[in-house]
Amino acid sequence: MTAPLLQLERVCHDYDTESRRAIRAVDGVSFDIHEGETFGLVGESGCGKTTTGRMIVKLLPVTSGTIRFDGRDVAGLTSRNDLMRFRREAQIVFQDPYASLDPRKKVRDIVAEGLDAHRLTASRDEREGLVAEQLRSVGLNPDFMTRYPHEFSGGQRQRIGIARALAVGPRFVVCDEPISALDVSIQAQIVNLLKDLQVEKRLTMLFIAHDLSMVRYVSDRIGVMYRGRLVEIGPAEAVYHDPIHPYTKSLLSAIPLPEPMVERLRRRVPYRQDDGAGVCAMRQARPGRFVYCDDAGRFG
């Protein structure tokens, strides 16, 4: 088996490191993402999903642990050349389509931002052509180039954000809750677009969301996060249909179902940490399935 494209090893991130009230947002997270795979990261808000995603694309420093991208430690990319290459290979799509586009820039300049930063185009016409191509590939009319972001709907803006990230031709994209701020009907469109683009451009993706049901459709494997820790990793369908960790069960029980009869029978499973659990770590529960628990199988 080939080495994974992305490897996280006991990655931690503390906010406010200088002050005494440092907050450990991500606490010893380890997982691998293989080339061409989509890894879904789910969990409630504040559990450290976004922080993890931002650390991977080097928007936040890693407090401890290592992130390896293509075999190289991301924190060690200090020379300009290495860093710029990494910036082309790993991209991020943001959550809020209203905050992620500069309101003072035309769509053309937003999408061409990466092209400009890496000086990928020689002439205006070439730049224009590449932008048009990017817009077409995310399902937008190239004529929209001369418009400002406020003239677009949430879904369209998210498409522009995706076009901007993909313009530099990345191998790996972090999708940081790209659908959370959208209507359900639009969510499906964006998810399908991402799936199509992944096949077309052979992307590897980290798909972050708080909604397990949507993540299941895009992801090959799912990691469930809780309070800065990964509590369960496994193939998407297996985690969805047969959760092992009680937190995953609780998370699944929170998904509303569009079927009144079933919905009436749905019961929330509240999650309580087992205080009696010993030293916990990720342990293989079944082939390919890892759960955070202690030796005796108690979940902490």
Binding site: V57, K58, M84, R87, F94, A99, S100, E113, A117, V168
Partner: peptide, 16 residues
């Protein structure tokens, strides 16, 4: 703001 983060992720220098 996320658009500034996006610009950083795209490799833009702080000055730019």
């Amino acid at each position: 703001m996320e658009y500034v983060l996006a610009a950083r992720a795209l490799g833009m220098s702080r000055f730019r």
